[in-house]
Write a protein that binds this DNA or RNA. Sequence first.
DNA 1: CCACATTAGTTAGCATGCAAAGGGTTATTC
DNA 2: GAATAACCCTTTGCATGCTAACTAATGTGG
Lengths: 151, 151
Amino acid sequence: MKRDVVASEFLEVLTKVSRRVRTAFNQQVTAHGLTYPRARTLFRLTKKQNMTQTELAYELELEQATLVRLLDRMEENGLIKRQPDLRDRRAKLVALTPHGEEQAAFVRSIADQIRDQIFEGVDISELQQAISVLERITANLADLEDVHVPA
Amino acid sequence: MKRDVVASEFLEVLTKVSRRVRTAFNQQVTAHGLTYPRARTLFRLTKKQNMTQTELAYELELEQATLVRLLDRMEENGLIKRQPDLRDRRAKLVALTPHGEEQAAFVRSIADQIRDQIFEGVDISELQQAISVLERITANLADLEDVHVPA
DNA sequence: CCACATTAGTTAGCATGCAAAGGGTTATTC
DNA sequence: GAATAACCCTTTGCATGCTAACTAATGTGG
């Protein structure tokens, strides 16, 4: 099997798995007004509150513009609140509401269940090796971004 | 390192890589009116033309509704054409236009370049192992879908 | 053959994603 | 200290993604 073929196959299966994970997760939580991106956001906030949106966007690997609307919806649903940063009037600090904390805990338990199922039959060492591969690819992609597209 | 933590990490890096691949690819081809999903569609059609939309959606792992609009745009851009299936008046057969064939070849070359870069420093055997892991996860996800969400 | 279910494609509504452009603050530079 | 740059968030416009509901055509049972 040639390298190019394997690489293509890898990209295909990566795309598919990624979509399936998102969809599977959504199916489990939509009834509660949640989605995969919202869950990711809740988790981050569980670990570190009162980040600015820029910081949070960086951690989630999202563009700021994308995060704005995500937070808009989460604020409407009472999951998070935005508070002014007293040291910088441009910035806003994002924090969980009590309801957000509850939902974060709920989502955590759902995520644990799903994880157990989707990783069934996969060794922890295999996972770690796969992570290593994915991280190297991430690094290579970061390099790629630095190279500007020729007009 | 606990299994849960590794599993979480895996999902995070999977999500991130997937987004980065899509974005990186888009940056290279948007100038030509192309996108990552359109490129995937072109590839499939290169391998097998005159599929019905249902078949194509299955191969691409997309919902039919998603494919409809994707094909709408590709048809507007003159990349593909939809022709009636003489054996089933409900169905439509999707084929590449000459322009679509050209673009498929162009995208192929771009994709080859990008692949070389993003997989730099990754062994083919590592890739194959990662594919194996991703495929097992896909299978587990398929099982998950069969289990209906309890109300 | 006729009622009914099933299937193919579409439409509509919602939620992410992105890039590009804009407004208000803060930082830098001269 | 004023002009300029940089930064934080937002808005806008576009392209995917999904589910749910709909139309038209085909299959199936009786």
